[in-house]
Design a protein around this nucleic acid. Structure first.
Length: 438
RNA sequence: GACCCCUUCGUCUAGCGGUUAGGACACAUCCCUUUCACGGAUGCGACACGAGUUCGAUUCUCGUAGGGGUCGCCA
């Protein structure tokens, strides 16, 4: 039988990173087995649902590359995929449960499910069998006085109706799962296989909350992460692929995934390592992807990159191995896109403190003017030559060049900068720096 | 309080009875570098504790402690 799994978020906030990882493991299981991944929106709590939260779910999952086979925007044979539209189905199942003698009502109209009070074992593909003794908890409410159904009930009904074979969800549900199994049986159905995955903790070791850095998927988009890097890092918190190294693609993850390899213990989130993973993926980008990745960030920073993709790629490649996030690109390459860039205070201070600067800049201008080989090698020779004639070390000229060409103390390799800028612009910039000192 | 899950370097982890307990991030030092970075090398650093099983336990069992979770007319 083909595997059917689902991600069933409720649209009450943003897409939480823990939820995204739950979706991810379900998706991996489906893709690995050639099964079906379903997105179901659990919007039974009308007061708390928002349109924005709904969109955050769609956008977040799509951004991560987690596509669903059935669900909102996709349709499918088991719809509707919004619980708010499945009222009549729940009514029918509720009636069935009533007929089975498993429902009774409180004075105010709330309906409770009468537990079987038998020992129940959860067959868990991650943790192994988990046994619960007959419960002493009060019977659980499954319908409110206003007629609205409670999560436990609709969740089970939909898993029956939608033919779920596996339910992969957070470990925080373990203590509820026996109740769900009880419901399945009361409704005359065999429960699915469960798999409870460990929780995501913040660096302090407690459950990730809204305030925590990186709690919402949107924050990664805003911070300039690559989706494949976040995908990669999320996998790593809870599962280790049998692979050399720690960076891998979604495709590799699908090939290597095995639900029984998922870890049993909670993991703390580490933004530093997540950023490192992003750096690794950033290096893998080809020119076209690199430009597409960085362009929005350049524009957001007020840079006009223009339409010369080859030139943009040159500028980005000059710092590709020095940055970790797309949001860092503007500060590293902005001077490539305007002749009117600002000089950092520290740069001006250092230039002014160097009594020889005007003389050396003039020498560099004429030396570079005479250079016929405008390549990294040729420029190296040219700088050495100027240094020799001026009686200084070449190392003393490099900062002057860097400052003049970029206005910054930190940036791409000096020779690479000159190659990217070209002869004319490079020399003009030396002139501009000299003028600033005059 | 009851029940459930978990426990290897600071963090993420490898390990599925015999290993000098391996890797990654972070950190430190050194090297490379005419500039800025990257990179390379080395170092630091862990089996929660106590019993038991065994010729032999990080690994299996039990207990204790610690961490996390659930016990809603939230999902």
């Amino acid at each position: 039988m083909s595997i059917r799994v689902r991600f069933a978020p409720s649209p009450t906030g943003y897409l939480h990173v823990g939820g995204a990882r739950t979706a991810l493991f379900n998706w991996l299981l489906a893709r690995k087995s050639g099964g079906t991944f379903i997105l179901r929106i659990e919007d039974t709590d009308e007061a708390r649902n928002t349109e924005a939260a709904m969109n955050a779910i769609f956008e977040g999952l799509s951004w991560l590359g987690i596509d669903w086979d059935e669900g909102p925007q996709k349709g499918g044979d088991y719809g509707p995929y919004f619980q708010s539209q499945r009222r009549s189905i729940y009514d029918a199942y509720f009636k069935k449960l009533e007929e089975a003698g498993r429902v009774y009502f409180e004075a105010n109209g709330a309906a409770r499910f009468k537990f079987s009070r038998e020992a129940i074992t959860i067959p868990d593909v991650v943790c192994g069998d988990i046994r619960f003794a007959p419960t002493e908890e009060p019977d659980m409410t499954i319908r409110r006085p206003d007629g609205g159904y409670i999560f436990h009930f609709v969740n089970v009904v939909d898993d029956i109706e939608m033919g779920m074979t596996h339910v992969i969800r957070g470990e925080d549900h373990i203590s509820n799962t026996w109740k769900h199994i009880d419901l399945f049986r009361a409704l005359g159905h065999t429960p699915p296989r469960y798999g409870h995955i460990p929780l995501l903790l913040n660096p302090n070791g407690s459950k990730m909350s809204k305030r925590d850095d990186g709690a919402s998927i949107d924050s990664y988009i805003q911070a300039g992460f690559l989706p494949q890097a976040v995908f990669n890092y999320l996998c790593l918190l809870g599962w280790t692929p049998k692979l050399e190294g720690e960076t891998f693609s979604a495709q590799q993850a699908v090939e290597l995934f095995d639900i029984s390899d998922v870890h049993h213990s909670n993991a703390r989130f580490d933004m530093t390592k997540c950023t490192w993973v992003n750096q690794q993926h950033l290096r893998l980008l080809d020119d076209a992807d690199l430009v597409a990745y960085a362009r929005p960030w350049l524009e957001k920073a007020g840079i006009t990159p223009g339409s010369d993709d080859a030139y943009i790629a040159h500028t980005l490649n000059s710092v590709k191995e020095k940055v970790s996030l797309a949001s860092e690109f503007p500060s590293w390459v902005h001077f490539f896109f305007t002749e009117d860039f600002a000089f950092e205070d520290e740069v001006m201070t250092k230039l002014k403190a160097n009594a020889q600067a005007p003389k050396l800049l003039a020498a560099l201008q004429s030396g570079l003017q005479a250079t016929t080989d405008w390549s990294e090698a040729g420029l190296g020779d040219a700088v050495t030559k100027v240094a020799a004639s001026e009686g200084v070390k070449a190392g003393a000229l490099m900062p002057l060049l860097r400052f003049s060409l970029s206005g910054q103390t930190r940036g791409p390799d000096v020779k690479v900068m000159m190659v990217v800028l070209g002869q004319e612009r490079s020399i003009a910039r030396l002139g501009r720096a000299a003028a600033l000192l005059a």
